[in-house]
Simulated assay, not measured.
Amino acid sequence: MDWKEIGFNSEEEMKASIERVQRARRNPPSPIQQGLDNKSRLQENMDEHGRLDLNAISEGARLEELDKVVASRLYQDEQRAKEQKRTDAINDLLKKVAAATKAENEAKAQAAIDKEKAEAIKAIEEKHKKENGVFVDPLDDAYRALLK
């Protein structure tokens, strides 16, 4: 994440926000704890004369809003990572199916080629038999033709 793009004043401020968001996700505060936190924040936002420090309140509100943006970004990143993991698993499965289908198709094609080859050899053998039933090699016929 780019801290300037989001609206932080520094990278350290962004890291602190990320830590606050992650801490809140790990240990969500109870309603009682939220009330105590609000009370302590109110005390922190008082100046030395007991008046509310509007600058501190607006800074706190700005940081809370940025924490919401950070929480949203972290959630989106987690969802993207889950979706990417799911997509990778599906792609791996599809690759395995494709490889199995390819192997099956190659085996079928090779079986068809072997069958055609056997039929062709059988046809050649029948064609080159002499009247006494002896197989004559086609090369022998070719050599005899050359010698004539």
Rank of each mutant, 00 (worst) to 15 (best):
D2N: 15
K4N: 02
K4F: 04
K4Y: 04
G7C: 09
N9D: 12
S10Q: 07
E11L: 03
E12H: 10
E13N: 11
K15C: 01
A16L: 04
I18H: 04
Q22F: 04
R23H: 12
A24W: 01
R26H: 11
P28R: 13
P28K: 11
P28T: 05
P29G: 00
S30L: 04
Q33A: 13
Q33E: 15
L36Y: 12
L36T: 04
L36C: 07
K39Y: 15
E44C: 14
E44S: 15
E44I: 15
H49Q: 13
G50M: 03
R51Y: 12
N55F: 09
A56N: 04
I57P: 00
R62L: 09
R62Y: 10
L63I: 13
E65N: 01
E65R: 07
L66K: 04
V69F: 13
V70S: 03
V70R: 05
S72P: 08
Y75L: 09
Y75M: 08
Q76S: 05
D77Y: 13
E78Y: 03
Q79S: 05
R80P: 00
K82G: 03
K82L: 15
Q84L: 12
Q84W: 11
Q84D: 09
T87A: 14
D88P: 05
D88C: 07
A89W: 08
I90N: 02
D92S: 04
L93A: 09
K95Y: 07
K95N: 05
K96E: 13
A100P: 03
T101W: 00
T101K: 12
T101P: 03
A103W: 00
A103D: 06
A103T: 04
E106D: 13
A109G: 09
A109Y: 06
A109M: 11
A111W: 01
A111N: 05
A111V: 02
A112R: 08
A112T: 09
I113W: 01
K117D: 00
E119N: 13
E119W: 10
A120S: 08
K122T: 13
E126T: 00
K127C: 03
H128E: 01
K129G: 01
K129P: 05
K130M: 02
E131N: 07
N132G: 03
G133S: 06
F135C: 10
D137W: 15
D137E: 15
P138D: 08
L139E: 12
L139Q: 13
D141I: 14
A142F: 15
A142Y: 13
Y143N: 14
R144V: 10
R144T: 09
L146V: 04
L146W: 05
K148S: 14
